[in-house]
Design a protein around this nucleic acid. Structure first.
Lengths: 191, 191
DNA sequence: AACGTAGTACTACAAATGGAGTGGTGTCAA
DNA sequence: TTGACACCACTCCATTTGTAGTACTACGTT
């Protein structure tokens, strides 16, 4: 088992690309080798088995999904009203759209989690932590609404992103923006 | 190419099971043979290639996903208020939970659609038709709200179901019911 | 500066797996 | 008798895996 952390991370990032492109079942050691541009057999040296690779990829994705520092800082300025929430939601959709590979990989992992208890446990923790962090952030910064508000936005925005990434022909981009606006208007109380 | 329609449908239903259990990439002709309990090679005789099998499975799922006649009839009685919508949403979540195999297969197909234009076209049509039908039904029966109402409910309910089926540890069943109630309360105007 | 060692990169091999497609034979019904 | 289908068997092909073996690099020691 190799210990070179930089290479291990590079392999995990390659694994995420493979997940998005080929699906969970297409995530073979050799495919990761090819994607990472390393000699065949390398991934075998870094991960004990597919379960190992999948769970580590699951945690790795969340490291990339966090909003960057600038976004977080920006969101601390100005009034804490509904318009602010609308802005945050548009940013969210944009940000995830820009990292669509990660989001698609995460969907693949969710489906794979129905078959792999170890992966399911890891993802459950990550998602729970993510939802809780969103709730705490929202309430902590004084944005309008309660925990249910945040969770309902979470639900609506997630499927909106799924729709946008997997079947972009169902809703136009303009309609999707209207739906983001509409979701905030109806779910978030006027602050 | 065989013409026996009963057997073709049985193979498609087996394909849906395989999709949910093994993922899109696991949908091989031989796996369908095994799932359907027919001799190896049979599926090869009924479908020209994997693309053919996947797209036909995509249309087949929607035949199973329609609410049954009793449900539709029941929903035409009584007042057209917000409580009625709440009931419909709980029914929806229940109904899809009971056919989780179909829903998971559909998710697999969505992801596969990012790689297969033919499948994407088929699914886009199906989903569009489904959303439109929901909107028309809602407005047509005089339930409160507009098209945006229906589409926001569609978004929230879909991800709620994803959460429930793929990572059931994130939200408790009780919390999920509260979220259904909360979604209707906030998204649907008091009728 | 030379040496030894540990960890890593790379190559190559051998084996196993599993799936696709097809030809042939049996069966049933019109 | 004929045509369509069910079933079976076989071959070919592509892919993956794990690991053994070799080469390289960095670093600490003498």
């Amino acid at each position: 088992m190799r210990q070179n952390q930089a290479r291990r991370m590079a392999l995990l990032d390659a694994a995420i690309d493979v997940l998005a492109r080929e699906g969970a079942r297409g995530l073979t050691f050799r495919a990761v080798d090819a994607q990472a541009g390393v000699p065949g057999g390398t991934t075998s040296n870094y991960f004990a088995n597919r379960d190992d690779l999948l769970t580590q990829a699951g945690t790795r994705i969340y490291e990339h999904m966090q909003p960057d520092v600038a976004t977080m800082a920006k969101s601390l300025e100005g009034p804490r009203d509904r318009e602010r929430v609308t802005g945050l939601m548009h940013d969210l959709v944009e940000r995830i759209g820009a990292y669509s590979v990660g989001y698609l990989a995460l969907l693949e992992l969710r489906l794979e989690a129905t078959r792999r208890p170890a992966l399911r446990a890891v993802l459950t923790e990550q998602v729970k932590a993510n939802v809780d962090a969103n709730v705490e952030y929202h309430l902590g910064t004084g944005l309008p609404g309660d925990a249910t508000t945040v969770e309902l936005l979470y639900l609506a925005m997630n499927w909106l992103i799924v729709e946008r990434l997997t079947l972009p022909g169902v809703f136009t981009e303009a309609r999707l923006r209207e739906l983001v606006d509409g979701a905030v208007e109806r779910i978030v109380p006027a602050g």
